[in-house]
Design a protein around this nucleic acid. Structure first.
Length: 399
RNA sequence: GCGUCGGUGGCGGAGUGGUCAAUCGCAUUUGACUGUAAAUCAAACGCCCUCGGGCUACGAAGGUUCGAAUCCUUCCCGGCGCA
């Protein structure tokens, strides 16, 4: 029995986009779908019931974080991540590959996944960089220093898969190296070679264990901003028997769609593709159009906790003075629980007085907004109106 | 009334002769947030202008000094103690 079954039911004419159904041991996912991030086996500020009610189909947790606390064996003994966190739907776990980046090359530099124009100078070497960073890479794996207590831990591809077997999600990722966009082409090639070797090892280890019966393994395409490397990576990994593929790395905003297209024109059509860590409306349209089926992103929930809200007319910050006396919903056209029952003035009050409910209510809204936007893209593809939908949405959102 | 301690920027509270437009915290304003190191971070925050600078400021008014938020005098206001 295969752990996953992916069935494409409609294609976007002239493009790589498609809709489908991804069946997992814990239920079906209508794709394209936005994956809610619950790094530490919790979607921050929300109960699983809230997450379900706002329309989430699948939750993604993290290997590195759950390994550190509470420990993957505890999650295993609890009956796996679904049972542990009381989320009954499909789950995924990331491999810890992103932490190679965020705790390594990006540590202390405020570097994110998307490189903005003019940020290149940040690539200048920092004094004592090797001391400050908390992840050090070698050919065999990565040494992490815990961001919690400073203790040292060593991840190999085998170790990451072993942890993910213990966590027990329906879909797991091969251990990869997410590179900094500042790295040279030479380094990108070297890192990609490492990611490929790690991918094979992840696959071999995975298939040497019985968990392969229930867990699908995704390989992760890397290659930075290089067309040559991206295509090379898609070729290499596409030829391996993964159950799906992730597209990782950090991008120049303008280049992302191209990079996604390079990868997806090569990756096997019948396998699900997950664009890792992307969640801005404009990026999601590009990703769907160019053939991605899944995307996860912390932005909706993180923004929400910081007072940032999506609306049909663009982003707003509820900390802005004007909303203190605005007695209308965050988005009058939104059907979420928060918009049905609360005003901006109330949310502004909650944020200013630092009440916990603020982050909860706005997380509900932002997740609902993004999830439903992707749902609408899916329906638009099925109804042959994707490009109209896209144009109307983006024109209004970014006006 | 006498004695005593104190009055600093929206608030709290440092500073006790020059390096003070004044540490710091809060509040305020704005910005950022894309496989969560994040309910976080950054910037601005007397007035005027362009970096730089100019102007007005530490209860009020005088004074000492090259120079005062800092010392002196008087006054006003507040806490406490004694009558």
């Amino acid at each position: 029995m295969r752990p996953l079954n992916f069935k494409i039911d409609k294609k976007l004419e002239g493009k790589l986009g498609r809709t489908g159904v991804l069946s997992t041991p814990h239920g079906d996912i209508q794709t394209p779908a936005f994956v809610t991030v619950g790094t530490k086996a919790t979607v921050k500020a929300l109960t699983p019931e809230m997450v379900k009610d706002l329309g989430a189909q699948v939750v993604l947790a993290n290997t590195y974080h759950l390994y550190l606390e509470p420990g993957d064996e505890i999650v295993r003994d609890a009956g796996g991540i679904q049972k542990f966190m009381n989320w009954t739907g499909p789950t995924m776990t990331d491999s810890g590959g992103f932490q190679v980046f965020s705790l390594g090359a990006a540590y202390g530099k405020g570097l994110g996944k998307i490189l903005k124009r003019g940020e290149e100078e940040l690539a200048l070497p920092v004094l004592n960089e090797e001391i400050s960073r908390k992840a050090i890479i070698d050919p065999n794996g990565v040494m992490f220093r815990s961001h919690i207590d400073g203790s040292s831990h060593y991840f190999t591809p085998e170790k990451s898969i072993e942890i993910q077997h213990n966590l027990g999600a329906d879909m797991i990722f091969a251990f990869d190296e997410c590179t900094s966009p500042h790295e040279s082409e030479h380094y990108q090639a070297e890192a990609l070679d490492r990611t490929h070797r790690w991918a094979k090892r992840s696959l071999e280890y995975h298939h040497s264990k019985p968990n392969k019966e229930t867990q699908g393994l995704f390989g992760i395409v890397q290659g930075g901003r290089s067309e040559k490397l991206r295509k090379e990576s898609a070729e290499f990994l596409g030829a391996l028997p993964f159950d799906g593929y992730g597209i990782g790395g950090s991008f120049e905003k303008e280049d992302m769609n191209k990079a996604v297209e390079w990868c997806n024109s090569i990756l096997p059509e019948d396998k699900p593709r997950h664009l890792l860590g992307i969640g801005e409306p404009t990026d999601l349209f590009g990703a769907v159009e160019n053939g991605c089926d899944l995307f996860d992103c912390v932005a909706p929930t993180r923004m929400a906790r910081n007072g940032g809200a999506h609306t049909r007319d663009g982003k707003i910050s509820l900390m802005n003075a004007e909303f203190r006396t605005d007695f209308t919903p965050v988005d009058a056209e939104c059907g979420c629980y928060t918009c049905k029952h609360y005003t901006k003035a109330y949310l502004a009050h909650l944020f200013r007085s630092k009440e916990m409910l603020a982050g909860t209510l706005l997380s509900i809204h932002n997740l609902y907004f993004i999830i439903h936007m992707v749902d609408e893209m899916r329906e638009a593809i099925r109804n042959n109106i994707f490009f109209e939908y896209k144009e109307n949405f983006l024109k209004r959102y970014y006006k």
